[in-house]
C-alpha cells in the first residue's frame, strides 16, 4: 500500500514537472548557434544533401566511431553471457512447426530486405537513412530468417569477417583523412563530386557503407546468440 502511494507520488511529481515544461514551451522560429553554421556551410564544406548525415559522419565523426564501438562492446558482452557449453552446440531447438506462409514469405522477402538495407545505407548522404538504419534493416531480414526456421545455421565466420573488415576499413578511411585532408575522418579525400549525385560527398558513402555492414553484422550476431541460447533446454 505504502509502495503504491510512493509510486503515485513519484509519477505525479514527474507529471507536474513535465506539465510546467509543456506550458512554458514555445516553438522556435529560427536556428541558433552551431545549427546556423551547419545550415550555411554544410552543403559547401561536406557536399552531402542530407545535413544530418554530414553532422553524424563528418562534423561529429568521432562520436559515430564511439557509437559503433559501444554497439561492438554490447555484442561482445552478449556473446560472453550467452556462451554455450560444448555439448549444447549440437542440440536442436525444440519448436512448433512454422507455417507455410511464414517460410514462403521469408524466402521471397529476405533478399529484398537485404537489398533495401543496402540501398538505404548507400544513399545515406542523399535521402533519409544511413548506415545505422540500413544495418538495422539488414538485421530484420536475419530475424525473419530465424523466425521462419528456428534451427537455421547462420554462418558466424562470414559475420565475423564482415564485421572486422568494415570496422578496420572505417578507421583506415579516417586515417586517410588525416593524411590527405584536414583531419581524422575528414571526407574530402577524393574530392566532393557533383552535389546530389550518388558518388558525391567524398568519403561519406564509403564510411556509411562500412558502418551499415558493421551494424548489420553486429545486430545479426546478437540475434544469432539469442537463437543459439535456446539450445540449452
Amino acid at each position: 500500500m505504502l509502495k503504491n502511494i510512493i509510486i503515485a507520488v513519484i509519477l505525479i511529481v514527474f507529471a507536474v514537472l513535465f506539465f510546467d515544461l509543456f506550458m512554458l514551451y514555445e516553438a522556435r522560429t529560427g536556428l541558433t548557434g552551431i545549427a546556423q553554421y551547419y545550415a550555411q556551410n554544410g552543403a559547401k564544406e561536406v557536399g552531402a544533401a542530407n545535413l544530418v548525415t554530414s553532422i553524424v559522419v563528418t562534423y561529429r565523426g568521432f562520436d559515430t566511431l564511439g557509437e559503433v564501438t559501444i554497439l561492438f562492446v554490447a555484442a561482445s558482452i552478449i556473446s560472453f553471457f550467452l556462451k554455450l557449453k560444448e555439448n549444447d552446440e549440437s542440440k536442436n531447438i525444440s519448436s512448433k512447426d512454422t507455417t507455410e506462409i511464414l517460410v514462403t514469405a521469408s524466402n521471397v522477402l529476405v533478399p529484398v530486405i537485404f537489398l533495401f538495407g543496402i540501398y538505404v545505407f548507400i544513399n545515406g548522404h542523399l535521402t533519409p537513412g544511413g548506415g545505422f538504419q540500413g544495418g538495422a534493416i539488414i538485421a530484420t531480414g536475419v530475424a525473419l530468417m530465424i523466425l521462419a526456421n528456428p534451427n537455421i545455421k547462420i554462418n558466424t565466420q562470414i559475420i565475423h569477417w564482415v564485421e572486422s573488415i568494415s570496422g578496420v576499413g572505417y578507421v583506415v578511411v579516417g586515417i586517410f583523412g588525416l593524411i590527405l585532408a584536414g583531419g581524422f575522418l575528414d571526407n574530402k579525400i577524393t574530392g566532393l563530386g557533383e552535389f546530389g549525385a550518388l558518388f558525391s560527398a567524398g568519403a561519406i558513402p564509403i564510411i556509411y557503407s562500412f558502418i551499415g555492414l558493421k551494424v548489420g553484422a553486429e545486430i545479426s550476431n546478437i540475434l544469432n546468440k539469442y537463437q543459439k541460447s535456446q539450445k540449452n533446454d
Binding site: 529560427g30 536556428l31 545549427a35 546556423q36 545550415a39 550555411q40 552543403a43 559547401k44 557536399g47 544533401a49 545535413l51 566532393l192 552535389f195 546530389g196
Partner: peptide
C-alpha cells in the same frame, strides 16, 4: 538543390 547555398 545547389551546393554552397544558405538553407538556414
Amino acid at each position: 538543390q545547389k551546393a554552397g547555398i544558405d538553407v538556414s
